[in-house]
C-alpha cells in the first residue's frame, strides 16, 4: 500500500510519463480512500491546466502585456544601424 508521500510522487510522474499498471492501480486505490491526496491531485491538475494555457495561448492570456515603447525604439534603432551599415 502506497503512502501519501509516495502517491504525490506518482501524481507528479503521471504528468511526465505513463505509469505502470501496478503503479496506477496502487495510486487509484490510495486515492479512493484518501481525501487529502485526492484534493492534492485535483490541485495539481488545476495548476497544469493554467500552465498549459500559458504555453498554448500566451497572446490571449497576456494580452495586456506589451513590449515597452522604449524597447521598441531601441530595437528599431538597432535594425536601422544594421541595415545601413
Amino acid at each position: 500500500m502506497y503512502t501519501c508521500k509516495q502517491v504525490t510522487g506518482l501524481i507528479s510522474q503521471s504528468l511526465d510519463h505513463k505509469l505502470s499498471f501496478r503503479q496506477k492501480i496502487g495510486m487509484y486505490l490510495h486515492l479512493s480512500m484518501c481525501k487529502l491526496c485526492s484534493r492534492h491531485k485535483k490541485q495539481m491538475a488545476f495548476l497544469k491546466q493554467l500552465l498549459d494555457l500559458n504555453k498554448k495561448q500566451p497572446d490571449t492570456i497576456h494580452h495586456s502585456m506589451n513590449l515597452s515603447e522604449t524597447k521598441k525604439e531601441e530595437i528599431k534603432r538597432c535594425i536601422r544601424e544594421h541595415t545601413h551599415s
Partner: peptide, 12 residues
C-alpha cells in the same frame, strides 16, 4: 510583431 513576440517570451 513586437507585442506578440513579447507575450510569447513572457509566457516562457
Amino acid at each position: 510583431y513586437g507585442d506578440i513576440l513579447f507575450r510569447f517570451a513572457y509566457g516562457r
